[in-house]
Design a protein around this nucleic acid. Structure first.
Lengths: 147, 147
DNA sequence: CCGAGAAACTTGACTGATTCCAGAAATGGT
DNA sequence: ACCATTTCTGGAATCAGTCAAGTTTCTCGG
């Protein structure tokens, strides 16, 4: 079970207490990147039994604040969470089903882009969301018809 | 009043019926770009009297669908609406007060950026949000909570 | 080993933003 | 002006998430 201890270490290094809900949330996120709170709650419950909804929201909140979890909120979908947090990568979101995919940031460090005008803002991050249709939602075209 | 008729024309060209709520919502948006539904409802009411909340939401919905209004939904803030819709420009959002500013897209046509990997998605838009602190919320000023 | 204080969890009410619904009113083509 | 269609009204309902109060659990000094 030593290989399952990474979650404990993540929490420890972030200065957070190690508790069953926390460890489980992190493990769930490792398995299902971009899961919504809803999904996470379900997975945590089927993993360790009863856990309050609030507890999971608390865990997500403290982990996000501690910088070990990243929250993404694509328009029209509930918040999603992921563990990839160091690299400032971006996301592909399906307009039809909401599926989220990761794309590496082409430009390296944050903010990876510069606004053309700054309007006096002190910009620290450029968040990029690529909108499109995922392979599963693609219109049913026959393979022969490759226009 | 001929110069106030642009709203009617916009609706007409979009194939939408001309009604007081619609015309007023468009005028409000012209004056206050990036307004939230809340703000729009207030402004419409002080303009033409009683209008149901639902009516405004309907107007925003049909206009967005018709492509004459654009909806933006920065994380942690209610949806905002704007009339700039042809050019695919981007936004600056203040982490503190939520103020939104426009920035022209440096790269021209949509999608102005290309994801480094496509994962099979058919990408049609790259949405960029620059996060930062606006001049009004900049540090040197004393922290007078207005959240 | 014990107890105090802090941190985390549970429960349940509550909020804000938005949508759904059914009926009444307004719009625009003939 | 008439009528079918579209839009607006009012109110209930939903969804995602937050708040607050009370209880349990952990951690650490004595």
């Amino acid at each position: 079970m030593a290989e399952l201890r990474w979650a404990n270490e993540m929490l420890q290094q972030a200065g957070l207490r190690i508790t069953a809900p926390r460890v489980t949330v992190l493990r769930v996120l490792a398995e299902r990147p971009h899961a919504a709170a809803d999904t996470i709650i379900g997975a945590v419950r089927s993993d360790i039994g009863a856990v309050s909804t609030q507890a999971v929201y608390n865990v997500l909140q403290v982990c996000t604040d501690a910088g070990i979890v990243r929250r993404i909120q694509p328009a029209g979908s509930p918040a999603r969470y992921e563990l990839r947090v160091r690299d400032n990568h971006h996301h592909l979101v399906c307009r039809s089903c909401g599926t989220v995919g990761d794309v590496d940031c082409a430009a390296g460090e944050a903010p990876c882009l510069e606004p053309s005008e700054r309007l006096g803002f002190d910009v620290d991050e450029a968040e990029v969301v690529f909108w499109g249709i995922c392979p599963d939602c693609a219109p049913p075209v026959r393979e022969e018809e490759t226009v």
